[in-house]
Computed example of a mutant assay.
Amino acid sequence: MTDDPKRYPLLAQPHIRLLGTVDDAMYQNFRQQLAACPADGTLVVAITTLGGDPEVARAMGTDIRLLRDYTGREILFLGKVAVYSAGATFMSAFPVEHRFLTRRTRLMIHERKLQKTMTIEGPLRSCVPTLKATLHEIEHSIAIEEEGFRDLVAGSNVSFDDLRSKAPNNWYIEAEEARDLGLVLDVI
C-alpha cells in the first residue's frame, strides 16, 4: 500500500460511480454520468460489480478509450470491493498506470461462458450451417476474450499465458496481489 493514503486525492471523489450488474442499464447510467462530467481535467471512474455482460463492459471501455485518445484526458479506474468478470473486462480499457483498487477489493477473472441448447433435426445437409454458426460463435468469442486478456495484462508482470491458464478456474486476486503483479498501479 502507498505510504501516503492522501497521495491520490482525486480518487476520493469519483466523477462516475457504477454499482451492480454490468448491463444495458449500467451502460445508460455510465453515459449519463459521463455526459455530466467536467469538460477538462482528470476523470475518475469507480466501479463495484459482480459481473455481467462482457459486451457492455467492452462498449463502456471503448467509450473510455475514445475519450482518452481524442481528448488526451487522463482517466483513472478505481475498483471498489468487487471487480468481477465484466468489471475486469472494463478495467482492461485503462492502462495499468491508471488503475487503482481500494483495500480489500478482489478481482475475479474467468473465461467467457456459453450456455446453449441445440436441436439438430432434419436432413443432414441442413444441419451443417447450424453447427458451423455455433462453432464460429465460439471461435470468435474466444478471440474477443483473448483480446481482452491481452489488454488486461499489458504493462503488468502477468503473462497472457499465465492469465489464460488461471481463467478457467475463476482467478480471484486480492488488491495487494494485483498491485504486486502490476495489474494495478496502487491500492488506496
Rank of each mutant, 00 (worst) to 15 (best):
A39F: 00
A39C: 01
D40V: 04
G41R: 06
T42S: 07
L43Q: 03
V44E: 12
V44C: 08
V45I: 15
A46G: 07
A46D: 10
I47R: 07
T48P: 02
T49S: 15
L50A: 14
G52R: 11
G52P: 10
G52A: 07
D53M: 08
D53G: 07
E55G: 05
E55N: 14
E55C: 05
E55Y: 14
V56Y: 03
R58F: 07
R58G: 13
R58T: 14
R58C: 14
A59I: 09
A59P: 03
M60N: 12
M60K: 10
G61P: 10
G61T: 13
G61F: 12
G61D: 14
G61R: 10
D63H: 08
I64S: 10
I64Y: 09
I64E: 14
R65L: 15
L66N: 13
L66M: 14
L66W: 11
D69Q: 15
Y70H: 14
G72T: 11
R73W: 13
I75A: 09
L76K: 14
L76P: 09
L78K: 09
L78M: 08
L78S: 07
G79C: 14
G79I: 10
K80T: 12
V81S: 12
V81P: 01
V83R: 05
Y84S: 08
S85I: 07
G87F: 02
M91K: 08
M91T: 01
S92Q: 05
S92L: 04
A93F: 04
A93H: 02
A93V: 08
F94H: 01
V96E: 05
V96S: 01
E97V: 01
R99I: 00
R99W: 00
F100G: 03
F100R: 00
L101C: 00
R103P: 00
R104Y: 00
R106M: 02
L107R: 04
M108V: 01
I109F: 02
H110R: 07
E111G: 06
L114H: 04
Q115E: 09
T117H: 10
T117C: 06
T117V: 09
T119N: 11
I120S: 09
I120Y: 09
G122K: 09
G122D: 07
P123C: 04
L124M: 10
L124E: 13
R125E: 12
S126K: 10
C127N: 09
V128I: 14
V128K: 07
T130F: 05
L131T: 05
K132V: 11
